[in-house]
Design a protein around this nucleic acid. Structure first.
Lengths: 257, 257
DNA sequence: CGTGTCGCCTCACGTCGCGTGAGGGTCAAC
DNA sequence: GTTGACCCTCACGCGACGTGAGGCGACACG
């Protein structure tokens, strides 16, 4: 056996068969022989040339430069010096890049995300770990949860304070409407519902009117949510649900499935 | 004017129009408005987004990562840390590359090319600077000259010593044939001519029999070459020319144009 | 002598971020 | 109405292969 097939050569030199095909295509390394069936057969001379190619490729010289270089029309040292220069340039660029990234990271961290302690300080134990855990398990796979997690991850303590203020503003709007005796289909109740939707939409996840209906139903169906509202004012949970549905109707949103 | 056209935006942000088209194509930055004629109109919001894109692009983040990042579903710091890691990896690779190139250069220089002094020592003043200069001007543009220059540039002193020995062997073969009274068309003379051709072919540039004829004619036409041969033996220049033509005929080479 | 498995072949499209025309409308100014 | 300057949509090119698809060829085994 004085010649080798592509597969053997590929294994010998640690390149892929496709690479050898490529070198053949562009004329960088054309095997000296072909079998009647068209199989490439590489001779010893071919392997010597491939060895050169592999060496220069490790130096990341472009293939066309390797070609002119191996055909003896140009000086290897020239190419190597040029390559060294371009690599050095790229090195400088990358060093600058790293420090730029570091600056960006620092900026990113400067509006530091709030810590769990910050959150407990603001929201009390309603934000307890086991509750978070359970919520994670129930909705962790949903797009809404993922988006919400990604966004809140970066919220600072100041952001959370705003969120809390907004929540309270929404709740008190509901309470005012409820206690003034206006029905859940009234303008005031629907406005509060819309305010509620926008609050979640802006702060947590994309929320359209249809999805909003689903939330509303859950406030009544899940006793934990129900309790939150009932603790503020008796009858508020159902009132909120009805107001949200009325608001969704007003915006022509499809009924929850 | 509350919106901007591609050209204006491109100038403002130092990107090309094509880049904006590309961002539109891949959905990274789709202008909020289009004129009836299909012109892109960028709003203030669009520009804010573009600003973000430009910043992250300077950090060489891939465009699809920038997209997911700007759509608020993932954390910027995560991406930045990943990017920092890959850049650091690449930095290490490039540093290793530089030293590999340096090692290659050193190897390259170790078979040090001969200096002009080395050459004068071997060939005397026949290799003088002004002669080299003139030759450069006469043939510098030809492929043969370029190839020869590229190859001899790397010749070591030892290589040149071999070249000199070969030259003398060729010349003495011609002289032996001439002085033994054999005609230029004799086997011995033609063999010397072939030896002469191969010597130039192997050491300087690709030389076929047809081109060889041209060289032969010049040895007689150019007094400087003629003198070189006549100094060795009277009548040698014309003898060499005839032997080369006879050898070319023997190999069925086309007559020089 | 058939069959299975592995290796080889030739297309040919995808990658990544645009650059660079080609061919043809649009807009404001003169 | 005519000129430029500007805009549009294709569509190919780059660099070095990766990754199938679809189809022969070679060799071992039953």
């Amino acid at each position: 056996m004085t010649t080798w097939t592509v597969g053997q050569v590929a294994d010998l030199f640690g390149v892929t068969v496709r690479t050898l095909h490529h070198y053949d295509e562009i004329g960088l390394l054309v095997p000296s022989e072909r079998s009647r069936a068209g199989y490439r057969h590489y001779t010893d001379e071919d392997l010597v040339r491939l060895q050169q190619v592999v060496v220069y490729r490790r130096l990341e010289l472009p293939l066309d430069e390797i070609a002119t270089l191996l055909d003896g029309f140009e000086d290897a040292a020239d190419h190597l010096r040029r390559q060294r220069a371009t690599v050095m340039t790229r090195l400088d660029e990358l060093r600058e890049l790293v420090s730029a990234i570091d600056r960006a990271l620092e900026r990113e961290m400067n509006d530091r995300p709030a810590t769990p302690d910050d959150l407990k300080e603001l929201f009390g134990d309603g934000f307890s770990d086991e509750y978070q855990q359970e919520a994670q398990e129930r909705w962790g796979e949903s797009d809404a949860w993922k988006q919400s997690a990604a966004r809140t991850k970066r919220y600072t303590k100041a952001d959370w304070a705003e969120v809390k203020a907004e929540t309270e503003a929404v709740n008190s709007a509901f309470v005012r409407a409820l206690q003034s005796g206006e029905p859940a289909t009234s303008e005031a109740a629907m406005d509060a519902a819309e305010q509620h939707r926008r609050h979640i939409h802006d702060r947590f996840y994309d929320l359209d009117h249809t999805f909003h209906r689903g939330l509303a139903d859950m406030y009544v169906a899940d006793p934990r949510f129900t309790k939150t509202y009932e603790d503020i004012a008796p009858g508020l949970a159902a009132y909120v649900r009805d107001a949200i549905h009325a608001n969704a109707d007003r915006h022509g949103a499809a009924t929850d499935r």
